[in-house]
Design a binder for these strands. Structure first.
Lengths: 333, 333
DNA sequence: CTGTTAGCGCGTTCAC
DNA sequence: GTGAACGCGCTAACAG
């Protein structure tokens, strides 16, 4: 059995209360007693039992992190940042994947909450669990909104807007867009911003306007590849000269699809991604993309969860266009 | 305050002991009382407090997972699999990154152990913490060995061997190798297997043998890119016609380096990776690589940690050569 | 400044 | 088959 606070007290010839005070760095302990207690703590290798403490205090120093899929580089990076910051503050992070499944999400959150976490950082899949969650623990939502909860995210609409704007400014007119799942609000916003920029073009230069070709799927590589193939399998006259995607993973899948069809990027096709995962600057060609300031997102989310001040409703960060090698002017105007 | 077992007992008109027995599905409870208790549990929305239970039982249902870097796709996949299997068994997983830093690792494990996990799945960085770890909780090591602990991993030597063998069989003789950090045993083994195959060639066909050019770095994209550049910046007569790497990430970085230098893969350079991360089959060209059966690895690791039977010393799984598009016969013999 | 004590919520003896 | 009581390890309130 591990030594307890009682053993320390006994061996040091003091009471458990005193040992507890030493542990809590309570200043109302005389110097020599403090020294003696600390000495015996080292001597018998005492390590406080967090369970006892947590039970007594009715709270833990665990932070729940619920993401759709940890193998998504964006969420992996989020997890890394959150874990770094959390452990620096003495917290540990409990990881749960929802696989974009509302039922799994509900289940995961339920068991997580059962562990009385100090807070919850959640990338929600469904809107159906909004109620009762807020009251049970401090919750911050990341990337996707959940009614009634604080949200930290990038301005997705602005991100989509930037992508369209960049492609238009290069001279592209026949644009494609690979969207994320229609069920997620984040997809809708990114696509909305994209479409909005085109609408502006329609207003200002009606003759230049071509309706965008929009397809919809998941955020992953495979979806980008399949939807890309679908978009590119058209007569050259109607095929988009540029495609924006809702994630870098989709963009990378699209890169693969383009290559399979003998199209060269950026000569025959321009591509803009979203997120700026590390891989984005390593693929061939390097991916022009909309950067999310993920370290900021992680920091704000953790602050929101741990901070003592009231939660703001929404932290909307600015995305940034990263110009790299996957975009060029259209070759066949 | 959340309702406790006491509230349930009071409201159901029974004792706490009885409620506890109902919760534990103890059969020595009469049917009608059981029904009544369960009804009031639902009625007041009682949820057992895990902290109380854990304290009483002196163990939790948490599994610690310690990896060098969760953004490494291989570890992300490991985490996903482990989390899936664990949550299916009612366990949660606590995630910690070590950043390949022995001090951070020690610290992380220390705080993790303080939470009295049911078990620990560890991808160790250093060998210095072997002592005392085993005795504190059930520990299984993954990917890299740690003396005195069970290890689940692929046969890394065999993997390196397969890579060399494949390249030789295609006709390559001037080979390069991008190794992982010299401090990790896994790097040594992969490289060792690679070299071993070349030694066999030296024995059997001394005239064909050319000493491999070996460079060493981290497992990440960037390292692969840098070391690749280094390897490829040579007169064509001495430059390797094929390079094997210790990770897919390095291989993808190398792909990028080759492109930057105007080399075409596989025409001018053949590449073999290691791991078979999802991305491997999506890059241009698709990466020939040595596959690790990561789902098997996760399953065995978790079984080892949760299983009641004694831990085997080592589970060494067989790697598999995945032939894809990044290898071809050398064009200039 | 220090010792004593009462629970935090639960599981588990030990009586009945 | 069920209830009462103890204690897991700890902190905080209260006495002294």
């Amino acid at each position: 059995m591990n030594p307890t606070i009682k053993d320390v007290a006994q061996r040091a010839g003091v009471s458990v209360g005193t040992v507890s005070r030493v542990l809590a760095k309570n200043k109302t302990v005389s110097e020599d007693i403090r020294a003696k207690v600390e000495a015996t703590i080292d001597a018998i290798g005492y390590r406080p039992n967090i369970l006892g403490r947590s039970l007594r205090l009715a709270k833990t120093d665990i932070i729940g992190l619920v993401v759709p899929d940890i193998t998504n580089p964006f969420f992996a990076e989020l997890a890394k940042q959150v874990e770094m910051l959390a452990s620096a503050e003495g917290y540990s992070v409990l990881l749960a994947n929802t696989h974009d499944d509302p039922d799994a999400e509900k289940q995961q959150i339920e068991t997580l909450l059962g562990r009385l976490p100090a807070g919850l950082i959640l990338v929600p899949v469904s809107n159906s669990l909004a109620d009762g969650l807020a009251s049970r623990t401090r919750t911050v939502t990341v990337d996707r909104p959940l009614s009634g909860h604080a949200l930290v995210s990038v301005d997705n609409r602005q991100g989509g807007y930037l992508a369209a704007d960049h492609l238009l400014s290069l001279g592209h007119r026949r644009l494609g867009y690979i969207s994320g799942p229609g069920t997620t609000e984040v997809s809708g916003e990114r696509r909305g911003g994209f479409v909005q920029r085109l609408e502006e073009l329609r207003k200002s230069h009606p003759g230049d306007y071509v309706p965008p070709q929009i397809v919809e799927g998941h955020f992953d590589y495979r979806s980008g590849e399949e939807l890309g193939k679908q978009l590119l399998t058209q007569p050259v006259a109607s095929r988009p000269t540029a495609i924006a995607t809702a994630s870098d993973q989709q963009a990378i899948g699209l890169l693969r699809a383009a290559d399979d069809m003998g199209l060269r990027v950026p000569n025959d096709l321009s591509i803009v991604g979203f997120d700026d995962i590390p891989l984005a600057s390593l693929v061939l060609p390097r991916l022009t993309t909309i950067r999310q300031p993920i370290d900021e997102i992680a920091r704000l989310a953790l602050e929101g969860v741990l901070g003592s001040h009231a939660l703001q409703e929404e932290y909307k960060l600015q995305p940034m266009l990263m110009k790299r090698g996957s975009c060029a002017a259209p070759s066949t105007p």
